[in-house]
Amino acid sequence: MEALRLEHVGVRYGGVAALEGVSLHVDAGEILGLIGPNGAGKTTLVNATTGFVPLNSGTIVIGDARLDGKRPFEIARLGVARTYQNVRLFGALTIRENLRAGAMRRGDLDDDAMRALLGQAGLLEADLDAAASSLAYGDQRRLEIARSLAGTPQILMLDEPAAGMNPVETKALGALVRAIAAQGIGVLLIEHDVALVRAVSDRVVVLNFGMVLATGAPDAVVRDPAVIEAYLGSAV
């Protein structure tokens, strides 16, 4: 079942087209990998979908609801959660408060629900009353994902979640992303780590200069000569 659909989405920053005619969809329970070189428009796509930058053209729909024109908090309440390229936790607040903030759209969370979320994110040992900023960098990324899940989203957009993680942490992250999708949540995964994207994604979309260059199964996409030339520079 289709959870999120973008149709002919265009975003301009002044005279520069950051996105042009981008169409894609994410199904419930699907992991869609989104790759592309720096400046291809990946983060702009997340920002446009979550209302942080306005669209110049096109439509974005979740279920029956239009997202374009809505403000970020309204889009979040409709079930679109996200993480950020640079971790944006509420650093001075506790882990508990971060999770409560994440659950704001659906009510409050009890300690058991928080523990379950932390356990799922691989932070079972974390002290709920510790400051979020006291966590190690990789754990902060995990907490940001747990905070996003606290709102029981339909769609989760992960913007370079493996950045700064070591191979062991990246492998655990891959398992976490698969577990999230197994709950029926559609995941849009932006990642420079192509191996991770290949390993976990059901489909991959390649952006280049703000346009969709290729779409398909991960192995087929990374063998596409156009993708190799535009993004990878050589075969992977």
Binding site: R71, R77, R88, M104, G151
Partner: peptide, 12 residues
């Protein structure tokens, strides 16, 4: 703490 992140979790 972070107005944009607050909106991102659904806070007006």
């Amino acid at each position: 703490e972070d107005e944009a992140a607050s909106q991102g979790v659904g806070i007006d």
